[in-house]
Design a protein around this nucleic acid. Structure first.
Lengths: 132, 132
DNA sequence: GTAATTGCAAAAGATTTGCCCCATT
DNA sequence: AATGGGGCAAATCTTTTGCAATTAC
C-alpha cells in the first residue's frame, strides 16, 4: 500500500472539465488554448502531464485520428465506438454494439480479462458519400 | 482519370515482405533494421514513405501500442482484432468476432459505408494474470 | 527518356523532462 | 512543513521533406 498521493490542482481539474465539456476529440494544443481562457498561465507541459495522468487513471482516453498528426483525447464517459471517415478524416462517436459489450472474451486463448473495448470503423460518412 | 504511376522498387517490395513475414507489429525503425540486412543502404525516410504508401493502398495498417512511442505497422492480411495487455503492454492478434463482421452499419446515422473494422480489447493477458 | 523513388540530411512536429519555485494537503 | 505539481525551456524522439542522383518502366 504505497500509493503516491495526488493533488487536485486547478490545472488538473480544469483540463478534465474541458475534456468533459462537449464530446470532442481534442489535441493537447487545443486543450491548452481552452485552458488558457480560464487560467492564462497553464503550460503545454502541464497539459501533457495531466493528459497522461488522466489517461492512466481512467478519466480520459486517447483517440488517434486515422492519418497522422498529434494525439487526440476525450473524457472516458459512456462507452462508444468511433467512426472515421476516410474521406473527410473526421472522427464521430457512435453507439457500441450490444453484442460486443456482452461478448465473453475470457476464454479466447491469451486473454484473461477485458476491461476496455475500443472499436473503430473506417469508411465513408453520409456527408462525403452524398456528394459534397 | 489521372492516376499516378507507381513503381515496384526493391525497397517497396522488401518492406512489404518484411511486414508479411511473421505477424508482428513493427515500428519504422524495426522495419529499417530488417530491411538493411538485405539492402544495406535503405534509409529511414524511404521506410516511412513506403509505410505511408502501403497504408494508403491497403497493403498495410497502423497499430498503436496503447502507451506512447512510435507507430507500429502490420500487413493487412486476414482481418483480426488486437488485444492489448495493460500490464505487459504486448499487443496480440485475436480472432475478430463474426457478429461484427456481419453487422449492418450503413443505417446508423452518419455512416454511409464501412470498409474496415478495427477492434482493440484492453485488459490483462493470461501470462500476466497468472502471476509472473 | 521520363518521372517516380531513393538517400541523405536538415527541418518540422510532438512529447517528455530537468530544474526550481509555488500551492495543496 | 512537506512534497506533489506547475512553468519554462531545453532536450529527445518521431516523422516529414527538399534536393540532387538514381532507377523502374
Amino acid at each position: 500500500m504505497n500509493g503516491k498521493k495526488t493533488r487536485n490542482t486547478r490545472q488538473r481539474t480544469l483540463i478534465l472539465e474541458i475534456l468533459r465539456a462537449g464530446n470532442a476529440h481534442l489535441t493537447a494544443e487545443e486543450v491548452l488554448q481552452k485552458a488558457r481562457k480560464k487560467l492564462p498561465t497553464v503550460s503545454l507541459g502541464t497539459v501533457y502531464r495531466n493528459l497522461h495522468y488522466l489517461r492512466h487513471h481512467g478519466y480520459a482516453r486517447e483517440v488517434r485520428n486515422g492519418d497522422n498528426g498529434p494525439a487526440r483525447f476525450e473524457a472516458s464517459g459512456a462507452v462508444h465506438a468511433h467512426f472515421h471517415c476516410r474521406s473527410c478524416n473526421k472522427v464521430r462517436n457512435i453507439r457500441l454494439p450490444q453484442e460486443l459489450v456482452e461478448a465473453q472474451w475470457g476464454d479466447s486463448g491469451p486473454i484473461a480479462s477485458v476491461s476496455v473495448l475500443d472499436l473503430h470503423l473506417i469508411g465513408d460518412c453520409s456527408d462525403c458519400a452524398h456528394g459534397r
